[in-house]
Structures are given as C-alpha cells and as structure tokens.
C-alpha cells in the first residue's frame, strides 16, 4: 500500500520558516514510522534529519509528533496510525533545531534540578561494591517510575508545558518522586524544595496527557499526585522522614574445599 508522508522541514541556516516535504512510501505490514523514515532517507531524500539509536523503544531518541500526537517512531506501526497520510513533525514544547530534531538541553536541565540520583549523607563512606538492602515492597513503590527513558514525549503532550516554559514538566517531577520514594535515598526534603518552588509541581493542571502519551507506561501524572501527597504530609509533620536503608553486611561464604581461589585483583 502506498501512502503520502509529509515531513516537517526546518533549517535555520537557510530559512527561519518551517515547511513540509511530501514523499510517497510503500508501506508493508509491521513497518514502523522509523523504518519508513530510514527508507525515505536512503532512497528519496538524504537531507531529512531525525534522531534514532536503538530502534526498539529503549533509548527514547526517535520521539516525534506523528499525525499530531507524540510517539516513539520505532514503536509506532504506520498502518496502525494511518492508511493515507502520515504527518511527521518535531516534538511540541521542545526547541526545534533541524527537521525532526529537538534540542533537549532545557529538558535535561530541568531533570538535573530535581537531583535525579541517590542523596545520602554517608555516601562517601559507603562501600561502592557493597549492597544496600531493599525489600521487594520498597522496590515496587517506585519501580514503575524508574522505567522512564527520557524521551520527552510527556513534556510534548503536557498542556502546562505548552503555556509555561519554566514549568519543570512531568518527566522531572515523576523522577523527583521516584528518587524520593527510594528507600536508599535521604534527599527527599531537598527534592521537595526544588520541585515545589517557582514553576514546580503546583503548576500541574491534572490533565493526565503525560500518562496517556508515555510509551513506557510510567504514568507521570500518578507520580505527581503521589508526590504532592507526600509533600503535604511532610509539610504538616504527618509523615516521619525515615533514615535511608543501610548497607547489607558482607556475605560470608564457605567455599567448597576443591574450588581454586580466584586470582588476585590486577587493579588495587
């Protein structure tokens, strides 16, 4: 089946205006938008610019607006979307730098604001090769939110991000909850401060568009609601801050007598 593909083109060095280039594409069952784009680049127009890497919904590089809705190009089959016209545009709410490519620096800057790593006062004393204990229930409480691949689709779908450029956005806020909820972390108060001030969590309008669009089922809107609940409970003194989970004691093994000893480490 042949369909028409309209690709948004933009080259700031040549013209400040965006325009559409139209191509014809022979589509087969199971063909993804990314497959189609690669075919077009190889056979029709080598100047089309787009980002991709893993081709299997893991890296999050190929996020774009597909028929006006944010999707991962590698995760979207063309025939599930359309049988006539496929319109490809860069993600909304991100700065477009070339054709289908967006600049993610602002996105990652906001991500960094909420300190997306474990914060512990004893971090320097920890044995880096050791383990920190965590029960399956503790893991379950944040696991869903740790599946974020930072593709920026939730930000493209968010109506608040469209009107408020300084808003932290669903991705950063969901990750703020993910790390605060982690039993190995002790930086909840710092993260709450970062997420609550200015154009932070209170600017969310409860639209839920982020969760609907997320290709990994992370549900950032749910994380935002849970984070708000945690913030209120903490600010009212109704939730005690727990100490971070401790290190596991080193495992004591009794090797069987005939097993040879491992060689000495080459790096001391």
């Amino acid at each position: 089946m042949k369909i028409k593909v309209k690709v948004s083109r933009f080259d700031p060095d040549k013209s400040p205006e965006r325009y559409f280039s139209e191509y014809e594409l022979e589509v087969s069952e199971g063909m993804t938008v990314l497959d189609g784009l690669i075919w077009l680049k190889e056979n029709a127009d080598p100047t089309i610019s787009f980002r991709y890497s893993c081709r299997m919904g893991v890296c999050g590089s190929c996020a774009m607006m597909i028929n006006s809705y944010p999707h991962l190009a590698c995760h979207t089959q063309i025939l599930e979307i359309t049988k006539s016209v496929l319109v490809l545009e860069p993600l909304c709410n991100h700065a477009n730098v070339r054709d289908l490519i967006c600049d993610f620096s602002a996105f990652f800057e906001k991500h960094r604001t909420i300190k997306p790593h474990l914060l512990r006062e004893d971090a320097e004393k920890l044995d880096l090769t050791g383990e920190i204990s965590q029960t399956p229930q503790e893991l379950e409480s944040y696991l869903q939110f740790s599946y974020c691949i930072k593709c920026g689709i939730c930000v493209a779908a968010c109506p608040t991000c469209a009107t408020d450029k300084e808003y932290l956005g669903p991705q950063a806020l969901a990750q703020a909850y993910r790390y605060t909820q982690d039993s190995r972390d002790a930086g909840g108060d710092k993260r709450i401060e970062a997420a609550a001030e200015g154009h932070g969590i209170h600017h969310c309008h409860y639209a839920g568009a982020c969760s609907e669009a997320c290709p990994k089922g992370v549900d950032p809107a749910f994380a935002i609601q849970l984070f708000r609940k945690q913030m209120v409970l903490r600010s009212l003194g109704l939730k005690e801050t727990r100490p971070p989970a401790g290190e596991m004691p080193p495992m004591t093994l009794n090797p069987k007598p005939n097993i040879p000893k491992p060689p000495e480490p080459t790096i001391k």
């Binding site: 609550a196 001030e197 932070g200 903490r234």
Partner: peptide, 9 residues
Amino acid sequence: MNSVRCWFL
C-alpha cells in the same frame, strides 16, 4: 515548604 502549605490551604 511554604509553597506546599499555601497549596494545601
């Protein structure tokens, strides 16, 4: 925390 209390109010 002030902004959290204001929002709760």
